[in-house]
Write a protein that binds this DNA or RNA. Sequence first.
DNA 1: CGTTACCTTGAATCTCCTCAATACACGTGG
DNA 2: CCACGTGTATTGAGGAGATTCAAGGTAACG
Lengths: 251, 251
Amino acid sequence: MPPKPKFPPGVTPCDKCPIRKLEGFRRFTPEELAFMMEFKSGELAAEAGTTILSEGSDGPHLYTLLSGWIFKYKTLEDGRRQVTNFGLPGDLIGLQASMFDAMTHSVEALTDVTLCVLPRAKIWPLYKNFEGLAFDVTWLAAREEAMLTEYLATVGQRNSMERIAFVLLDLFRRAQRSGLVKKGEVTLPIAQHHLADTIGFSLVHTNKVLQKLRRTGCFNWTNSKFVMRDEAKLAGIAMASEPMEGVRPFL
Amino acid sequence: MPPKPKFPPGVTPCDKCPIRKLEGFRRFTPEELAFMMEFKSGELAAEAGTTILSEGSDGPHLYTLLSGWIFKYKTLEDGRRQVTNFGLPGDLIGLQASMFDAMTHSVEALTDVTLCVLPRAKIWPLYKNFEGLAFDVTWLAAREEAMLTEYLATVGQRNSMERIAFVLLDLFRRAQRSGLVKKGEVTLPIAQHHLADTIGFSLVHTNKVLQKLRRTGCFNWTNSKFVMRDEAKLAGIAMASEPMEGVRPFL
DNA sequence: CGTTACCTTGAATCTCCTCAATACACGTGG
DNA sequence: CCACGTGTATTGAGGAGATTCAAGGTAACG
């Protein structure tokens, strides 16, 4: 019996992974790359609106987002929903299930997405033999922690204008790092109700503040097209600190 | 020259670490314990009110909190402050500096504290030779992420009564796991302004809502003495989900 | 052409903030 | 010992900010 082809047609082998081509992402050593090609068990495609992981659920896989956008959220029993973060290409999804056997938040696709599938069972050999990759996993968890800290400070302390400015600026900058911004323009696949659930405001109030923020002329955002016009000014309104620099790892 | 005694008088050797004696904390293997005794470079005592780590700072150490309480916070340029989490015995402090060479939040002692000092330089050998401990570090980072997610949902979605109930319940339960609760009583070294900065309310409003919550009779909290009277009822008000169970690691 | 999803606007109400004043416990110096 | 500051908790009043309810508008899609 011939060995099954590791990467069937349509599945990108890791050495051709689109994330690797991006600026600012760490390069694998040859050994790490070989391991990752072994680690990756396939790809998952999901349509916009699909729930990829549910709070409380376990699951045999870890994912890296290869293309598209997702958001992470938590719901209270009565339906109130808090968006806790967004995910762009290169982001790791589902680490919590690997650590606690239960997700502490849910994950939903904002656009059609493709995910790199990494079976949880192999995370142990990763820790055993590739301390560099193990360190990267920790790094990614710490980065998530840092982002949540910023959002917590935003929802807890920033006023309405600052909040919206902060989120839009953050999304724009992250899109930039994921290579999605062309000529100052991105497709932001976010509805105003997502924004409202992110900043802890009602939809109506979010809309009104957004109107006001638009009048500053820092950006244009209509029909999912976001155009940045004055990033520095928007950062000033957001009272945002400098974004994290340097290379970042991914799996 | 005789080898310097590894644990000078007054410093607790890891095999006598008070955290190890607590229920619900993972036990080290003999090899791990030996490594940790090597890893630990000393202890740090700090008075209440001391800033242990500052946002943006680097630092050569990681810490485990051995006794006392700390809180973590972030400030905006104009002084607004968001408390992002509290730390109790057994909690890891300063991981961000080890990952990013810069803390993304500050850490301050609420009480006199003692910290186990772990030099960052040895985190690499830890990852190289003790994958179990490396996994634990990741676990602790993921736990912090989970806690931040809960607090973000609290500040973003819960109303005033729910917010305060949630935080008090969380602190009580964590104190319990750290062995600080005796007969339903803990010393909560928290002032109302800490609570206010945690939930994103003004001090005045926090006080008024706290009055109202006291009248439910779920607890008594005066002069830093917190007495739980009806945890289930408080959990009901908080709209809290079940706390995380199972053994947890520590360093 | 009707349905659905999303965005927009106005009005009334309630939540939360700021300002201001008081009260109490504690420690310090006179 | 008391007088005084400091830090913390409490309370009231008036105004800014956010919510809810309700209505309309637009674009996409069958």
